[in-house]
């Protein structure tokens, strides 16, 4: 039942129209599906395949390459603790042990109440602020075990619900290209001439 909702279908069509080839929209659309349900269902993949003109197997082929896509429900909050070198040097392992004890699950597991999924992650581009983690891809920097306790408390009591949306939502702002400003995507085979501004003269 988790084909894209009507509202998301409108967004999906807008996204597809931005690309010279429809299949290019696939990863953004997979994110849209994950935003809608927290994970990507088979029905969603069938729907996305219809939208961009490929089989659902091809959709899964692409989706399964990327670590952020989940094909089964996970916790509302995905806690990714970085364990790559800079964070490892600064105590990432201790953080992971602490989080495992506090949540009562091993890395990769989800708590029984469906609130938290704990995972080991690779370098998050915050290496100077090690050790670090992301909750639903929102950063926590120079994290101590006590910070982990506070974070989990705050997530449990809903204190952070404004800042951190449920798993699946990335950017809270979408790109909108106004129709009167858009150049529009053109299939490459339909373009035969050089851009008009390459005429040896200034454009302005």
């Amino acid at each position: 039942m988790s084909r894209l909702s009507e509202k998301n279908l409108v967004i999906a069509k807008e996204i597809i129209a931005r690309y010279p080839r429809q299949k290019s929209a696939l990863i953004p659309l997979l994110h849209l599906a994950q935003e809608q349900s927290g994970y990507i269902s088979k029905d969603a993949m069938v729907h996305l395949g219809e939208l961009v003109g490929v089989t659902s197997a091809e959709v899964y082929g692409t989706a399964s390459f990327y670590e952020m896509f989940r094909f089964e429900p996970i916790g509302k909050y995905l806690i990714n603790i970085c364990g790559t070198m800079s964070c490892a040097l600064m105590g990432a392992e201790e953080l992971m042990h602490h989080a495992e004890k506090r949540l009562g699950v091993k890395a990769g597991g989800t708590t029984q109440d469906g609130m938290f999924t704990l995972a080991h992650a690779e370098c998050q581009a915050a290496c100077t602020e090690a050790p670090c983690l992301q909750v639903n891809y929102r950063y926590r920097l120079r994290v101590t075990p006590a910070d982990i306790d506070n974070l989990i408390d705050d997530l449990q009591t809903g204190k952070l619900s404004d800042e951190i949306p449920a798993h699946g939502v990335l950017s809270k702002v979408r790109q909108v290209i106004p129709a009167d400003r858009a150049v529009g995507a053109i299939a490459p085979e339909l373009v035969t001439e050089s851009p008009v501004w390459l005429n040896g003269k200034a454009a302005l």
């Binding site: 690309y19 290019s24 990863i27 989706a63 990327y66 670590e67």
Partner: peptide, 8 residues
Amino acid sequence: VLHWGAGA
């Protein structure tokens, strides 16, 4: 066009 990846 803003495009975004999915972890790889």
